[in-house]
């Protein structure tokens, strides 16, 4: 798979179809990967593909879009099925143009965060003795368990998984994607508040959740505004709660559930659980799912006469 990826990217660069390809390369630790930017054909050997390609590289598209010119060269981006959804989101919200990007779609069997290292940090050296495969199972990203897009919906080139020679796997998993959300919904109001209070109290306002998000592209974030200072810049429960609500709400109907915010959060606040809840409500109320159609109107910039209003007096 890596060979074919490198060949295709090499070809794109050689034919000057792309000015830059955003992909994955091995990180210094020899296990995880890190984003890389390939501009020359002789650099393609840096590109890798494995089960640790967790990053959503579409985050870099806005920063690099000035390098693109239509019709070519364009910006190439290595994207998993979930990442493609955020590319669709960016196109939908006029942040990039479809003909400015070459989507190098990857067939993806699910990603494993190098959570091992995190565990390793807690448990000391115990991890090394564990059965490696079993451990891998445990580390499969939560979002991947209910993945419906092992093969991206939109792409210019598709790199298929060598292991799957036959027909593609059935793409509708039986896992309930909203299981975690529903579990929390089942709790009492006070329990929910205590839960989130504890989680938000940890927030250190590093804004990694915002910075890593492919759809957080406001030129000036509301959190950075000082006149008035809407969101307290210092970490305190009050300001942390407001920040986390505002962050999630700005992504309502836009979040494509790549889970990057939660992964990036050093304090491990379960941000995906909030985003997912908003996605669930929007699906139920407005029958809309983000990241599927670049022509669709974002749900909060749209309305129907018969929208639900039971909550209104």
């Amino acid at each position: 798979m890596i060979k074919r990826l490198q060949e295709k990217v090499g070809k794109l660069l050689r034919e000057k179809k792309v000015a830059l390809v955003i992909g994955y390369e091995m990180a210094g630790d020899g296990i995880s990967t890190t984003p890389c930017f390939i501009e020359r054909e002789d650099e393609v050997e840096r590109l890798v593909w494995n089960e640790h390609c967790v990053y959503n590289l579409s985050r870099y598209l806005i920063e690099t879009r000035e390098l693109a010119s239509s019709p070519s060269p364009k910006i190439g981006v290595v994207a998993k099925g979930c990442d493609v959804k955020s590319i669709i989101g960016l196109i939908q919200e006029n942040q990039i143009k479809r003909d400015e990007v070459v989507i190098i779609g990857m067939e993806c069997e699910g990603q494993f965060d190098v959570e091992g290292e995190r565990q390793f940090k807690v448990e000391g050296l115990k991890l090394k003795d564990k059965d490696k495969d079993k451990d891998k199972e445990g580390k499969l990203l939560e979002k991947c368990k209910a993945c419906e897009v092992h093969i991206p919906k939109v792409y210019d080139l598709l790199i298929k998984d060598d292991r799957n020679s036959g027909a593609p796997e059935p793409q509708s998993p039986e896992v309930n994607a909203y299981a975690q959300v529903e579990e929390l919904e089942g709790k009492s109001q006070e329990e929910r508040w205590q839960y989130w209070k504890k989680e938000f109290a940890r927030c250190i306002k590093c804004y990694a959740c915002r910075q890593v998000c492919p759809l957080c592209f406001c030129p000036q974030c509301i959190a950075d505004q000082t006149l008035p200072q809407w969101i307290s810049p210092s970490p305190s429960l009050k300001g942390n709660t407001t920040w986390n609500i505002v962050r999630a709400f700005h992504l309502a109907g836009r979040c494509i559930d790549c889970g990057e915010c939660e992964r990036a959060c050093p304090m491990k606040i379960p941000l995906r659980k909030i985003n997912k809840k908003l996605g669930k409500e929007i699906k139920e109320m407005f029958d809309y799912e983000a990241g599927l159609d670049s022509e669709a109107k974002p749900p909060l910039a749209d309305f129907k006469l018969e929208d639900p209003e039971e909550f209104i007096r």
Binding site: C36, I204, C206, Y207, Q211, V212, Q229
Partner: peptide, 21 residues
Amino acid sequence: KCISCGVCTYLCPTCFCFDLS
């Protein structure tokens, strides 16, 4: 590839920059 978040600085034991408000 840096995403300009504050993780490295906030978790750094020697970073001491602050602001007042």
